[in-house]
Amino acid sequence: MRSKTVFQQEFKIKGGDFVNAGESSCKIRNILKEIGIDADIVRRLAIIAYEAEMNVVLYARHGAMYLFVYPDKILLKIKDMGQGIENIDLAMRPGYSTATEEIREMGFGAGMGLPNIKKNADVFKITSKVGKGTALEIIINLNGKNG
């Protein structure tokens, strides 16, 4: 279901930058609201974008988020250059985390990020190479109205 109508934007994310962390997901939310995306879908994407952004900040050197808004779906891609994930099945398990003590003290590392992303997505793909980086692809379908 490809359509020529697509709004796209790139958001860069810097690893280790806790000061600006969360800004990209905030911008994404504002774009979706302006386009008139349903509040509950904005909420789902807000959670997805925030968790994915934080994982890049925590576990990668740098990365970017790419937002594509189609009339019938939203596609979000997150790519990073970072440590990568050795065992994806394990990483997807709720509660699994490799976060250090310091990171846990900052309130992260519950091991709920990836499971939450998956839960809120209609389509969820993850690929990763150790030492290279990780890529996520998320799709949320928009209901037919206003197509």
Binding site: T5, V6, K33, E34, I35, G36, A39, V69, P71, G147
Partner: peptide, 14 residues
């Protein structure tokens, strides 16, 4: 919510 750029989603995206 505030009114979107357009009620029609395709138009809003454009």
């Amino acid at each position: 919510p505030f009114a979107p750029l357009d009620k029609n989603r395709s138009k809003a995206i454009k």
